[in-house]
């Protein structure tokens, strides 16, 4: 796709619909929409063969703002809607967009099963750690202790990790980025699209109204270098401007921080990222402060086929076993008798 000359491709703005975008001023969703438009342009995506599917919530307004086909469905059910679309029309490019409430609370079941089935979908979870559209209730990713409109005394439930959940569900593409990472995010979106199966991208997004600064421990310039671990396949797991790295822990299963000396990361025993290493991905997904948070593609290991293609192949094989089979023949498989006039 990237072979198409840049001038002949649709520009990012060409992917915007005629609808006025109605997110709050300063919402992280604007940046994500921009990154999606950029990714679609880089992919030279055909708007007529692209479908954005969503559930309910701020993030789920996404399809209205793109000039592709779009289906804004019901709360939590976008992965199931998208699965039906892919089963009917495997050739369509189908994206699913939802927030943390939509995809990790009411729709967690559908997310888990879309991932384990490996339906060829790009699934974007816009995680702002809050319910925005319903006015600020705690979500499954709201940190412990947070005071929200539904938890005035503070959250007492532990938050869940979208990336850990996806990996345990059997996802074969798991990535994470922050809304403000305008270089990394489109790159990841392009890769999620190209992954031939279910690809889950968690996008840490700032809600300026109800959870402003939820990700400030990653986004503040003063702490970013220490707090973020940017993953590159084959490259050492370095952060803090290369001064620190991650190596296998000596006395337990996991990762530990090591200072990188003048001899370099390899000498310090720093691991190199391998996107196909599920065990490493599980360890990376579990990193949380005070450890650096992993960003980029945690895991990418495509299966030979996807759910809808495997089902199609079964259908074709069943057809090939009984060529020309029709309903009239099937009906007459039972014993029949004839009454004459």
């Amino acid at each position: 796709m990237s072979a198409i000359p840049a001038l002949d491709r649709l520009q990012p703005k060409d992917y915007a619909s005629d609808q006025e975008v109605r997110w709050c001023p300063g919402c992280g969703d604007y940046a994500i929409l921009k990154a999606v438009e950029k990714a679609l342009s880089e992919l030279a995506a055909d708007p007529d063969r692209t479908v954005f599917v969503s559930g309910i919530g701020c993030a789920a307004r996404f399809p209205h703002y793109l000039a592709t086909y779009g289906f804004h469905g019901i709360h939590g059910r976008a992965p199931a809607l998208a699965t039906g679309i892919k089963l009917a029309r495997p050739e369509l490019d189908v994206w699913v967009v939802g927030g943390d409430g939509d995809m990790l609370a009411i729709g967690a079941n559908h997310l888990v099963h879309a991932l384990r089935r490996d339906v060829d979908l790009a699934i974007l979870i816009l995680n702002n750690a809050i319910y925005g559209l319903t006015k600020g209730q705690a979500s499954p990713t709201t940190p412990l202790g947070t005071r929200t409109s539904s938890t005035p005394l503070g959250v007492v439930e532990r938050p869940l990790s979208a990336c850990s959940l996806a990996l345990s569900a059997g996802a074969r593409f798991v990535a994470r980025a922050i809304d403000i990472q305008q270089k990394l995010l489109p790159e990841i979106l392009v890769r999620a699209h190209d992954h031939p199966g279910a690809a889950m991208v968690e996008i840490l997004q700032n809600c300026v109204i109800y959870a402003d600064g939820a990700w400030s421990h990653l986004t503040e310039k003063s702490v970013a270098a220490e707090a973020r671990l940017l993953l590159r396949h084959g490259e050492p797991l370095l952060f803090a401007e290369g001064r620190k790295g991650l190596r296998p822990a000596k006395d337990r299963l996991g990762l530990e921080v090591v200072e990188v000396g003048s001899e370099g990361p390899d000498a310090a025993g720093v691991l190199r990222h391998d996107e196909r290493d599920r065990g490493l991905a599980v360890a990376l997904a579990a990193l949380e402060p005070p450890m650096p948070v992993a960003l980029g593609v945690l895991y990418a290991d495509p299966a030979p086929t996807s759910f809808e293609r495997a089902l199609r192949a079964q259908t074709e094989a069943a057809r090939a076993r009984e060529p020309g089979l029709d309903l009239a023949t099937v009906i007459r498989r039972a014993p029949t008798w004839t009454v004459t006039g």
Binding site: I74, A80, T83, G84, K86, N109
Partner: peptide
């Protein structure tokens, strides 16, 4: 819910 929703998705896609 997924069963009916997937069926709706299929109809949307022309099946």
């Amino acid at each position: 819910i997924a069963a009916v929703t997937a069926a709706i998705g299929a109809s949307y896609a022309g099946a």
